[in-house]
Write a protein that binds this DNA or RNA. Sequence first.
DNA 1: GATGAAGATGTAAAGCATTACATCAGGGAG
DNA 2: CTCCCTGATGTAATGCTTTACATCTTCATC
Lengths: 334, 334
Amino acid sequence: MSTIKAVAARAGVSTATVSRALSNPEIVQPETRARVQEAIEALHYAPNHAAKSLRMLRTSKIMVMVPDVSNPFFSEVLRGAEEAAQAAGHSVLLGDTRGDESREAQYAEMLLRKEADGLIFLGHRMPPSLARVVAARGAQAPLVNACDFSAEHGVAGVHIDNARAAAEAMGLLYSMGHCRVGVIAGPLESHLTRERLAGVRRAAVAAGAERGLAVVHADYTIESGLQETTRLLAAAGRPSAVFCFSDEIAVGALSACRARGVACPAGLSIVGFDDVRYARFLDPPLTTVRQPMAEIGRTAVKLLLDILAGEPAPAEPVTLAHELVVRASTGPAA
Amino acid sequence: MSTIKAVAARAGVSTATVSRALSNPEIVQPETRARVQEAIEALHYAPNHAAKSLRMLRTSKIMVMVPDVSNPFFSEVLRGAEEAAQAAGHSVLLGDTRGDESREAQYAEMLLRKEADGLIFLGHRMPPSLARVVAARGAQAPLVNACDFSAEHGVAGVHIDNARAAAEAMGLLYSMGHCRVGVIAGPLESHLTRERLAGVRRAAVAAGAERGLAVVHADYTIESGLQETTRLLAAAGRPSAVFCFSDEIAVGALSACRARGVACPAGLSIVGFDDVRYARFLDPPLTTVRQPMAEIGRTAVKLLLDILAGEPAPAEPVTLAHELVVRASTGPAA
DNA sequence: GATGAAGATGTAAAGCATTACATCAGGGAG
DNA sequence: CTCCCTGATGTAATGCTTTACATCTTCATC
């Protein structure tokens, strides 16, 4: 590829002028600009990004770290993030961690090597190698935690009110007369799980149904949802409803019902979480807590770009609105 | 952040030695190496990627361009690609094009600016700005076309045998006695659509059922699947089966059936394409053509890395195995 | 003891674009 | 006519790392 030098030579100007013609066209004489333009086209010149990035100390890239791109929830958040980044002239570096700590560390390292200007992470763990950055800059560190936010991290964040959302979901079930309710939660290490469980308990207490609560833990996959639901259905005093911490888990639950010949919602009401794109197309259509996935992604990017632009970080994490979407997978207790 | 110079100064060696200690540890004396190591840790040194990349003329990044990350098919391919890239020490730059030509051009431009070493694109359009690269280097250009491959592009590619897969899907329907079959295809601009339609016709001819064929076009979304199916169901001589060119379309078809009170498969057999992760959990579980999505992603990356390593590109595009997965959404014609 | 080879480390160029500062020309004001 | 300011453009330093080549030890060999 040709360099700025070649373009300058051909146009009979200095490299400075070429650079200016590209980044500040209005300060170069129109005819000079035209000559430069001609040379650029003739030589098919495209500025080398590494050189620019080295000089400017900015990469125009943001790293987005997700536990699993192929999970419909994360891919939707990712899409929102990509959209916002792109609109702001940044591009997205994707890190799929598979929940693996060493992979997380590896991606975090990229921030230190200045391969990206900032990092958005969707998960409950904050990479230890970034601890120093956070210690030094606090919420001004170019880090945003999305979804599974914990104030302990001391970084900017965006999420929904998980406790309230969970309480509302349980409230729906209780209002329908269910008193034995299974909860298929996520792993306890996750702050998000603990938040939602707090909401669950609050609702149970309010309904005076604590004794009927059965909490089990899954890992957000369809398979584990199937397995845990099967276990709940087999137990004595089996629940008449389950609240799943993700739609994937709920799909597993539906599948377990089908396998055991339990009708939904007649035999088991099911509530999911997220409202992924196919939730409404399941049979029965899934009652679930909608998270504004794309909006979470966009907001995370916005927060990050604000931080990068040096704006004072908001003291509080951003809380977005959720919505309990009632469909046909829930019905009155028998 | 500290630079290699600072590390060198602290360790009392030259920058060359620091560099060697990092990239070629075995050629530096163990005690020197230890001193360097100490300095690196003390100063929290991490090599600046832009500088490295400028010097080496390599970025260790590959751009993956998809029409829609949140589509479960693409996100699964993406995941495979990310995995393979990461394993080979590269990282993935994500480009979500939304099928928008100008966005495609923008991402392609990044290749020219050397923001990435290579590009994998999942779509039917080859960005025009890359035409020169291809003209110059042919299949040695750092480009790989995945899924929707066309030989016209003249670049490396990976895909399944779409014509055969489509013929098999239709063959299944014909073998079940369906003679009026609707086909909800993709847009005709796409080479992949034309390939599959060729397979469809071949099967129809073989079954002597050409007259019963009704081909309509959707854009691979659930919504358009719903709409086109509704149209097919409303038409005179309505089909007893539909073959959808994606599972998303099939979800729309299922949804249309439900809306019109048509039972599946009793009233309408449905075949999808892709076998996305939730296809088996739909009700009824979807009969579909499984594409090895993650494998496609991995293979695309492998091809690209081979090209980047200067290995002679395979003369032929890689064809991976598909599989017709028969589930409960198909049944004998009434 | 001289010669050469091998191994360790240093020197400095190269990779490419941006931009502060310098320079130069032209026009307006006094 | 001279001085100064403004606007356009050039000069050169800067960002940081890698690596070819140069240098210097050290050890083995004849």
